[in-house]
Design a protein around this nucleic acid. Structure first.
Lengths: 204, 204
DNA sequence: CCAGAGATGTTGACAGCGGTAACATGCTCT
DNA sequence: AGAGCATGTTACCGCTGTCAACATCTCTGG
């Protein structure tokens, strides 16, 4: 794993790590093959032994960013203060939504990269297996299931409930960071977030 | 306006038009200065007499794409069948939402370009003035005002209502086109759209 | 009416990018 | 030990955005 003279030892991982750093600072368009190679102390083109193309690397980086998002969601969910089942389930759902938006705001580059739409090249190594249980979609679904289990959401409302919740939070995150709500002042942001979360909670 | 030997006559407009065509087919990353120049029958670098940078051109193209979105929203709103004030206002709001999502699905390149976040260079000509009244945000706000006027939405719910509606629809559009819902089958899409619109309507 | 100035378009150059091809090196397994 | 393969390098290509220098057109002031 240490630096051999010629063979790197773990170049694939090093490239992804470098890509994640680039993505953090500059979003998906900053994830540049040659820059990742430089960062890893390797010549450009070395990446092509581990990734089929630029997009293939970007997809691996994006998966990592998605992991980061999921990890924040998990952390914030766990921090919710205990309460009665119903209110607790609602609070945990809200925590997931706020984590999502906080991630978009504070880790803009990672957020944009996670959703840049890069797809891994088929017929490759199983890629870097994402840490299990960090898929944001599944985390959201689990909160909705909790809501049903707690009797706080009628079970006939459960099918497709992800769509509304996810869309609203994702859309707000996008509008606040890349979109026309880009330069909302801090309390404007707070107001928008509160409003959207309340709207979703009522609408589910 | 016709092709002079040396001076083009209306190059700025020609470049934007070319950019819009490029954006339609390939999204914002296809809006390439040199390609737009070629399309306009002009050498690369001519664009720099009319735009400060690549991003400046892209911003002008994006504004045009936003116009297109607004125009579709207006058209769909006008097509709504007459009804009692309350149901009519709801139907017109729904039409706006469906237009938004249809635009994203059928004019993917334009949609992505409209929201690519390019900002025009400050200190330029007043740019191409967008057609007045096509701002999607204002169109949505007008529908919400109608809802209040028709007595279908309590006026205390009106402030910030744009956020919930816009976020949900925008987020769904994004998830369906660029995001993890990319390869939903057609009736999956229909289901998701219906669910999200219903959720928003309940939550407002 | 015409000279000069400003606007507009051209040519040429540069660095950085993704990608291909040919080559060099080191590891591993028989 | 040596063959074969994985891995990394060098050289090159065409593309991009951008700058600088130059050419040409147009329009205004005298």
């Amino acid at each position: 794993m240490e630096n051999r003279t010629y063979h790197h030892g773990n170049l694939r991982e090093a490239l992804v790590t470098a890509g994640v750093a680039l993505a953090r600072a500059g979003g998906p368009e900053a994830v540049v093959l040659r820059a990742a190679g430089r960062e890893a102390g390797v010549s450009h083109n070395a990446a092509y032994r581990h990734f089929a193309s630029h997009e293939d690397l970007l997809a691996a980086v994006a998966a990592r960013c998605m992991d980061r998002l999921g990890l924040l969601m998990i952390r914030r969910t766990a921090e919710v203060a205990p309460a009665e089942p119903g209110p607790l389930a609602w609070a945990r759902l809200e925590a997931v939504g706020r984590a999502y938006i906080d991630f978009a705001l504070t880790e803009h580059g990672w957020f944009r990269t996670a959703f840049c739409g890069a797809t891994p090249d088929p017929g490759r190594h199983p890629a870097v297996r994402p840490e299990p249980g960090t898929d944001p979609y599944l985390l959201l679904a689990a909160r909705l299931d909790e809501l049903v289990d707690a009797g706080a959401l009628p079970s006939e409302r459960r099918p497709g409930a992800e769509y509304g919740a996810w869309s609203a939070v994702h859309g707000l995150a996008h509008l606040l960071t890349d979109g026309p709500l880009h330069d909302l002042p801090p309390d404007g942001i707070r107001h928008a977030v509160d409003t959207v979360l309340a709207t979703v909670a009522r609408g589910l």
